[in-house]
Computed example of a mutant assay.
Amino acid sequence: MLPPRNPDERLKARGADTRPAGRFEPLRSERESDGWDLDDEQHLLRTEITEERPRAIITRNASPDVPFDRSINPYRGCEHGCIYCFARPTHSYLGLSPGLDFETKIAAKPDAAKLLEREIGKPSYKVAPIALGTNTDPYQPAEARYRIMPQILRVLSDWNHPITLVTRGQLVLRDVHLWAELAAKGMAMAGVSLTSLDPALARAMEPRAPAPGTRLRMIRELAAAGVPTRVMVAPIVPVLNEPEIEAILQAAREAGATTASMIPLRLPHEVAPLFRDWLERHHPGKAAHIMRRVQSMRGGRDNDPNFGSRMKGEGIEVELIHKRFRLAKQRLGYQTGTAALDCSRFGPPAKAGDQLALF
């Protein structure tokens, strides 16, 4: 049961509606009127950005479900406010709510590029592609102010370090020349999330993310710049965007995407009640039906956390979705795999006075 919305706050383009406590909090609070409350004017809930100074920036993982073992997240939280975001529970580690706090209380890491250069410059460092945007979007609105990504890309280009990206933020087009520079060396690949072609549905699910037409333009401009671009149809939500699978793949292919991937809806920890609440607010007549179909892909539960199945789902429902996706990719001429990024040229950038290599 989620707590009620704060009546003193006016929400504009937010995914969540309230602030449920994180799973680690020992106490829960609820508003209760004692009859002495004064009628105050509502205030618009605005985004707050703080700065974080971590000691390291590269995060390691050993998950068998993802194709990378290291990643960078320049921000904590994400103003895009996607209601289904599997990263929402990470705000619980900060003592904040995975609900409204996740999309309104953002932490930026302005020293990310300096930390990155220090870490990849260690003699013990072994090169492998670094993934960006795996938890929260590095091109969310705060990036317009902090400009962390150009600094990161410049370090990686100077060191000839391969990189991959997942984003739905149009600010990536600001840095397209840097992505093109890395791609020309076989060291970059970008993934653009395109959940729906319906602007109304996209705005409801992803209230502060760019519209579908803008994301198709992102694919088009990245591809035109020579950056291998993947369309990510994720998450697949039965009834809502699942009927659009073929149309999304066709539109992305025409825009220049060469590879495609999908993930069925995941609802870990606090995301499940938040998504259920969102369904009741936006699609009350379909909510129960949608959740039954979600559960049919997750072994009868809202979420399946197990390695091997959490990214793919299980059961006839999801098998049919995977088959549709596979057949549409074949028909539209998508590549079946992605080329490996070049790790062979990794090394420190040349400095003034360094002797040039003979061969």
Rank of each mutant, 00 (worst) to 15 (best):
Y93P: 00
L94M: 13
S97I: 07
S97N: 04
G99M: 03
D101N: 13
D101T: 08
D101M: 06
F102P: 00
E103R: 12
T104F: 02
K105V: 12
K105W: 05
K105F: 11
I106T: 09
A107R: 15
A108S: 14
K109C: 01
P110H: 11
P110S: 05
D111E: 15
D111H: 07
A112M: 02
A113N: 05
K114Q: 12
K114P: 00
L115T: 04
L115V: 08
R118C: 01
E119G: 02
E119D: 03
G121P: 11
G121F: 13
K122E: 15
Y125G: 03
Y125S: 05
K126D: 03
V127G: 02
A128S: 15
P129T: 11
I130W: 09
I130S: 08
A131M: 14
A131Y: 00
G133K: 06
T134E: 13
T134V: 13
N135W: 10
N135K: 06
N135M: 15
P138W: 11
Y139A: 06
Y139Q: 07
A142N: 03
A142C: 03
E143D: 12
A144N: 06
A144Y: 13
A144G: 12
R145S: 14
Y146A: 02
I148G: 02
P150I: 09
P150C: 11
Q151D: 13
Q151M: 04
L153Y: 04
R154M: 01
V155D: 01
S157V: 00
